[in-house]
Design a protein around this nucleic acid. Sequence first.
DNA 1: TAAGTATGTTAAG
DNA 2: TTAACCTACTTAC
Length: 275
Amino acid sequence: MPEGDSIKRIANAWSDFTDERLILTSPQGRFSGEAARLTGSKFTSAEAHGKHLFLEFEHQQFIHVHLGLYGRFLWHKRGATPEPKPTTRLRAVHEAGMVELSGPTVCELITPARKQLIHARLGIDPLRPQDSIKTLLPWLQKSSWPIGKTLMEQSKIAGIGNVYRAEILFMLGVNPWIANKDVSKDNWNNIWLLSQELLSNGVTVGHIKTTTPNLPPPVTLPPTVTLPTVMPQAYVYMRTGEPCFSCSTPIEMVEFYSRRLYYCPNCQNVKTLNV
DNA sequence: TAAGTATGTTAAG
DNA sequence: TTAACCTACTTAC
C-alpha cells in the first residue's frame, strides 16, 4: 500500500531498531554484498521523503528503498525466526525482532551525496513539517499542467499517489483538468492542508481512509442522499459506475497520463469544462 | 483454487 | 515504449 503515509509508517516502525547492530542478509541474492558489508553496523535512524525510505547506519551509510507497486515489509515479533523466503531481498534480524523486505523497485546502499541527489529531485512532502506549499507557489502560478498531473508528480509534491490524488480533488470539488495557474492561492493552501490531514490520518490508522466523519466532502449533500452506515475507504477511488455519495451521479474513470483517474463529473465540474 | 488487478518506479530496448 | 519487480487482495469458477 505504498503512498507516502505507508512509507512514513514504515520509517516509524524501523525506530524500534535504533542503536541496534543488525544481522543483514539477502536470501533472494540481489542485495547480498551490501547486506554482508552492513552486518554488524549500528542502525541509527529511518527517514521518509515521499515514497522513498532511507535507513541510516553508522559511518553515513544509507539503504535507499522504494517499494514500487509490489514491495512489502513484513514484520516478525521478537523471537519469531521463520525460514527466510527465497523472494526476500533484505532480511534484518536483531533482539527486538525481525523484518523482511520483498519486491522493492529500489533497494541500494548509497552515500550521503547520492542521498542528497535523491532529495533534490523530490518535491515538498505533506508529512515533512519543514515543507510548505509556499515554496511551490511561484511555479504553480505559471504552470499550465493540469492539477491532476501535478498532484501525482513526485518531483513537485512527494508522497501523494493515485488514491489520495483522486480523493483530494473530489473532496475539494476540483476539476482534475484545470491548469495549475488557474487554481487560486487559497485553493492551493486548502489542497496542501487537506493533503497533510489525509496522509497524517493514514499514518495513524495504518491504511488509506479518506471517508472519516471528521473529513466529510465539502460538497453539500442533498437531503435525498443518505450516506451508507458503513463508509467505504474512499469517495471516488475504484468506484467507477457507482453513485457519488454527494450527488448520486455515477463516478467516472479515464486513463490520464498512464494512470487511472477517478472523479465525480458533477461535483468536480468536468462536463462544463473540457475533458 | 485460479485468475485478474493494484495505492509505482526503474532500466532495458 | 515495454518489461520487470513478484505481494496481497478481490472476483470468478
